[in-house]
Amino acid sequence: MAARPTRSTWSTGWVPFALVALVLVPAIAGSLRLVELSGGPLLLPANPRMTVSPVPVVVHIISAVTYATLGAFQFSSRLRRRRPGWHRMAGRVLVVLGLAVAFSALWMTLFYPRQPGTGELAYVFRLAFGSSMAASITLGFAAIRRRDIAGHRAWMTRAYALALGAGTQVFTQGIGGAVFGASELTTDLSLGAGWVINLAVAEYVIRRYRSRGTIRATAKVGSS
């Protein structure tokens, strides 16, 4: 009988690639901004806030793109199961990158001049969700240190969802502007909607994992 084909031990499924696709537009925009800040041609609308003090935005872009790309593969159950060493090593790197993303975002919010077209609400959103991302990473790291895998997974999922806010905001800002017109309030609410939508999806994923774990535990008890 012919041997059944086996999946590669590096097979990851479709989820990581869908997550990477979500941040493709912000990643391209960030890369073009890096080209400008490194002395290249102006490929995006000028942003004097960044050119005056480029270090925080460079840290933010590089950390965010790497975090979003590498972090996507942490959601591959196949990869976690077959390459646990890789998962742990990548996780340590992601803690550093994620904190760099969160703290650079907070620094820019606090010390850069306010982005044109945004108001007080966007300022509050950026402080709240940036702080929440840093807190989620810290709590996730603490959870895995005490072997709380469910807690670790939940907090790291929330942190990653917040990091992907820029990807979802491409859609919420486009839809918000088309439906309600261009205004400061529309922009602020569209930005907030991106983070809220991602957190809602994250909570759905977390609850789904927990329900699966409960079903498996019940099945084991029933079969014993």
Rank of each mutant, 00 (worst) to 15 (best):
Ile61Lys: 00
Phe75Ser: 05
Arg83Ser: 11
Thr218Ile: 14
Leu162Met: 02
Pro16His: 12
Ser63Gly: 15
Thr214Cys: 05
Gly85Thr: 08
Pro84Trp: 11
Arg158His: 11
Ala150Leu: 09
Arg4Asn: 04
Gly71Arg: 08
Thr218Pro: 11
Ala154Asp: 00
Arg208Trp: 11
Thr168Gly: 01
Leu19Glu: 07
Ser63His: 12
Ala217Arg: 05
Gly177Gln: 02
Arg88Ala: 09
Phe73Trp: 00
Ala64Asp: 02
Gly130Asn: 03
Val23Ile: 11
Val25Ile: 09
Gly30Arg: 01
Arg158Gly: 05
Thr187Val: 13
Val52Asn: 13
Ile206Tyr: 08
Phe125Trp: 06
Asn198Asp: 07
Thr157Phe: 02
Ala178Gly: 08
Ala128Asp: 14
Gly119His: 06
Ile28Arg: 01
Arg210Gln: 15
Trp14Asn: 12
Arg92Tyr: 08
Leu42Ala: 05
Ala3Asn: 04
Val205Ile: 13
Thr157Asn: 01
Trp107Ala: 10
Arg4Gly: 09
Gly176Ser: 13
Thr218Gln: 14
Phe103Glu: 09
Val59Ala: 03
Leu162Ala: 00
Leu106Gln: 13
Gln173Ala: 04
Arg126Asp: 03
Lys220Ser: 11
Leu106Cys: 12
Trp155Tyr: 10
Val124Glu: 13
Leu189Gln: 04
Val52Cys: 15
Thr66Cys: 04
Phe75Ile: 02
Glu120Gly: 15
Leu42Asn: 11
Ser211Lys: 12
Val20Trp: 00
Ala193Lys: 05
Ala102Gln: 02
Thr218Ser: 15
Ala154Ser: 10
Ala105Cys: 03
Phe141Arg: 14
Ala105Tyr: 00
Thr138Leu: 14
Leu19Thr: 02
Gly151Asp: 04
Gly165Ile: 02
Gly176His: 03
Met1Ala: 12
Ser132Glu: 03
Leu70Gln: 05
Ala159Pro: 03
Ile197Ala: 00
His60Met: 06
Gly140Ser: 06
Asn198Pro: 08
Pro16Met: 12
Met108Asn: 14
His60Pro: 01
Val25Ala: 10
Ile137Gln: 04
Thr118Glu: 00
Gly98Ser: 03
Ile144Lys: 02
Ala72Asn: 08
Leu164Tyr: 11
Ala72Cys: 03
Pro41Thr: 06
Arg146Ala: 06
Leu199Ala: 06
Leu121Pro: 09
Val52His: 12
Leu164Phe: 10
Thr157Arg: 02
Ala219Tyr: 12
Met156Glu: 00
Asn47Tyr: 04
Val93Lys: 01
Arg4Ser: 09
Glu203Ser: 05
Ala102Pro: 02
Thr172Ala: 08
Pro116Met: 09
Pro45Gln: 07
Arg153His: 04
Leu79Pro: 02
Ala90Gly: 03
Leu121Lys: 06
His152Pro: 02
Glu203Asn: 10
Arg88Ser: 03
Phe17Arg: 11
Arg114Pro: 07
Ala150Cys: 09
Ala166Val: 11
Ala135His: 12
Thr138Ser: 14
Leu24Ser: 13
Pro84Phe: 15
Pro84Glu: 08
Met156Phe: 04
Trp195Pro: 07
Gln173Arg: 11
Ala217Ser: 15
